[in-house]
Design a protein around this nucleic acid. Structure first.
Lengths: 111, 111
DNA sequence: AATTAACGATCCATAAATAGATCATTTCAG
DNA sequence: CTGAAATGATCTATTTATGGATCGTTAATT
């Protein structure tokens, strides 16, 4: 349990917990100790524990690093294709409007 | 560009950038300004900018919160099913070994 | 083309995350 | 069953992220 926590929605909190589960599972499947994963990720043992617990305060870089090491696939792209995915999407991004003007109809809460 | 950055692997860095792209795209599709998203997520405007830029230092809770608001689907589970996904996986987790003993073949960093 | 909101970047003070050490407990191997 | 190792938890010092303000630039609308 983290010392303190900023308020987050249930979906965001659950997403962090889910990712923590995937990381823990991947680590155990690979017969790695928490300490071993921490060392390879370049972080402390305590941070790995918080990551696996789904602490929403952890830096996303540390979490993704741990995920990568234990083989958790992010956003339907493996290590080989993630870079290309990002690159090809830059073109798409370039076509989007650079600034949003009208708030139009009240922000959609439907999801 | 973030002030400072802890070293992360290309895959982790690209993953953060990819998620930032998805969030930015979702925000623009919904005609939301950066400021509007920031307010709804309960964070500062500057943080949203860093999130969309793929800054690996951002708290994962803030990133997932922004993702949720603009409708980015995480780990193949929408808001309705994420909670159940986590819950049903607790049983699976319970079956895994609680501690890892043998390093098996010492983490061979031979290459 | 002019207007003005949105954006991106930077600086500083403050709040928060992280590292590192330590201790108790659990759990696996012999 | 026993011993050693892994885990989980907690504490403090330090590093770092974040909020909030500001400024120049960009770009959408008229």
């Amino acid at each position: 349990m983290p010392k303190t926590n900023r308020p987050v929605s249930p979906y965001a909190a659950d997403s962090a917990i889910r990712l923590g589960q995937l990381i823990r599972r991947g680590r155990i499947d690979r017969h790695m100790t928490v300490a071993a994963l921490a060392e390879r990720a370049g972080v402390s043992r305590g941070l790995i524990q918080r990551i696996e617990a789904g602490d929403t305060g952890c830096a996303i870089g540390a979490v993704f690093e741990a995920a990568a090491i234990v083989g958790v696939r992010l956003f339907d792209a493996g290590p080989a294709t993630m870079s290309r995915e990002v690159e090809s999407n830059r073109e798409v991004m370039a076509l989007l409007p650079k600034a949003i003007r009208s708030q139009r109809t009240e922000p959609n809460d439907d999801f």
